[in-house]
Write a protein that binds this DNA or RNA. Structure first.
Length: 252
DNA sequence: CCATTAAATTCAA
DNA sequence: TTGAATTTAATGG
């Protein structure tokens, strides 16, 4: 179970530690800020970021907490979720290095509508709302890149609504596997992100038992293999075909 | 959904 | 590095 709220104060989290990284020497090329670093007129806000270390399982965004900045993943992976009516967790997405977290509430919302938990020990960069707003107003290229990011996110989330409402459980589980595969890739024949069956279920919008049963069926058909949390995809073509046959689209 | 057993992971010595 | 303790997977009711 997730470690509950260790009272992180992001404003006072201090920057004098070994993982402190200045954006100017950061090697994270997926990072939107890093990609635009040459374009900034005024890089003041970059120097005001905080690096936050999160242990595996630590929640760093709590649903309902006030938004006063935005996170970027410097290192590690994270799951972003929303709690449904019956207390069930719906995983919105998995995020890896360079991705932005907590952007939805950025412009107008005052409170987070999502929670986020580190899946591994992770390092996050935290930028204040004020600094970012100023940077966006001053730097059109940066603003444009942000807009593209938002458009992408919207597209993805619209696809997800479709998949959850129209696909069968088996298709949703397969879709989830393909999503993880696309996003995190393979490592020595196994998906490069260890997830529990519960987490697959929360992403696919089903239950742990259903996932386990679909996995068992897929194993019998030799489409996947599994050793604990390590899932191997044996026949990605057939899996893709099963989704494509029903005319569903794959997101990023 | 819950209970049971098997399997895998974690943790600390 | 091991194995005991804890967590997670798998199955069947």
């Amino acid at each position: 179970m997730p470690i509950v709220n260790q009272n992180i104060d992001f404003r006072t989290a201090r920057k004098h530690n070994a993982t402190e990284t200045s954006c100017s020497i950061c090697e994270n090329k997926n990072c939107l800020i890093n990609r635009n670093i040459g374009n900034f007129y005024d890089s003041q806000f970059i120097n005001n970021k905080n690096n936050i270390k999160c242990k595996k399982g630590q929640q760093f965004i709590i649903e309902g907490a006030p938004v006063n900045g935005l996170f970027l993943i410097l290192k590690g992976t994270v799951k972003v979720f929303r709690t449904g009516i019956n207390g069930r967790e719906q995983i919105v997405r998995f995020a890896k290095e360079g991705e932005i977290i907590g952007h939805r509430g950025f412009g107008t919302e005052e409170y987070y509508s999502i929670g986020a938990i580190a899946l591994q020990d992770s390092v996050l960069c935290y930028f204040s709302k004020e600094g970012l707003q100023e940077a966006l107003l001053k730097n059109p290229k940066f603003a444009y890149d942000m807009m593209l990011f938002y458009a992408n996110e919207l597209n993805r989330s619209e696809n997800k609504v479709k998949s959850i409402s129209q696909m069968t459980v088996r298709e949703r589980v397969i879709d989830s596997l393909l999503y993880i595969h696309r996003k995190f890739g393979d490592l020595r024949g196994f998906l490069n992100l260890p997830l529990s069956r519960k987490e697959y279920a929360d992403y696919a919008g089903t239950t742990e038992e259903q996932v386990i049963r679909v996995f068992s069926a897929l194993k019998k058909e030799n489409l996947i293999s599994a050793q604990g949390k390590k899932i191997g995809i044996n026949d990605i073509q057939l899996l893709k075909k099963e989704i494509n046959d029903h005319n569903y689209f794959l997101d990023t």
